[in-house]
Amino acid sequence: MKLKKLTALGTAAVMLACMAGCGTAAEEESGFSVAMITDTAGINDQSFNQSAWEGLQEFSKASGVEVNYLESKQSADYVTNLERLGDSDADFIWSVGFDTADALVEVAANNPDLRYAIVDNSYEDTPDNVTGVVFKAEEPSFLVGYIAGKTTTTDHVGFVGGIENAVIRQFMYGYEAGVSYAAKEMGKEIQIDVQYAESFSDAAKGKAIASKMFSEGCDIVYQAAGGSGTGVIEAAKEAGKYAIGVDRDQAYLAPENVLTSALKKVGKAMSIVSEKVMNGEDFGGQTLSFGMAEECVGIPEENPNMDPAVYEDAMKIAELIKNGEITAPATEEEYTAFLESLK
């Protein structure tokens, strides 16, 4: 009898504590606030989710705006997380990753008064309260491909992808085009090996594939493979060859073996858009594209392992891309057409 009472008391105590939490929702009008949800890769994926959050944090520091995030563990979390953010006092909600596209459409339709944006996705029919933000990842990839082509001494380079999808294909075709362009410039043939790790989280697989490429004669391997890609960089470190990083400056992983990185400044683009929305602009129903011209993709300024002459040449190519004289391909058709134009 006593124990039953105790249990009842205990359960009641726990419930009271929870209810107490419910009561403290005094909404403070604290001004503009921005929030984001990650896709299932998580906030610490050392790739675009992390870049997105870092960008938002910088934006917060610079403008005093409150920022927060919700991490999604499964694809079914996208809707629930977006809804939860909608309940909080966030004024502008970011949905990071093309995986979240369908969930966002549903939530945006349910909450027509809230404003959303999505990273890495362009809809055929963008809802009125959603802004699509895409990146021309083929542009920095073209640049690093060009650099690889100019730097290789064995005329043999490689590319390791995570899992094949539209975004990774941007990286791949852009890179291949850059290598081909450099090859044409120097009047020689450069072989490009391509292999997929079928995972964004198997570093050992990435390392094994890169080791194979290095032992077959490649001296530079570019990776767009997330967690598997760190294995590629590791292989370069151990083989004494070069790797090219992606999304963020990955030189810190192997200071002597990372030639350069193809930067996709997700955070910067998000800051730009968030600031404009905060100042009253409305991009609902549109897709914004960020490339070199907008300074949201590129390569790091400091590349200790790169030949300064190659860097100079690369900057000239960057200008050509910015003013439209070179259009980096992002799909198979565009790449085939690009190769034709080189002939």
Partner: peptide, 16 residues
């Protein structure tokens, strides 16, 4: 042997 040999850091997905 993974975080000190195969790669050189620990990440959430190293052991999967």
């Amino acid at each position: 042997s993974v975080t000190l040999g195969i790669v050189s850091q620990f990440t959430p997905i190293t052991i999967a």
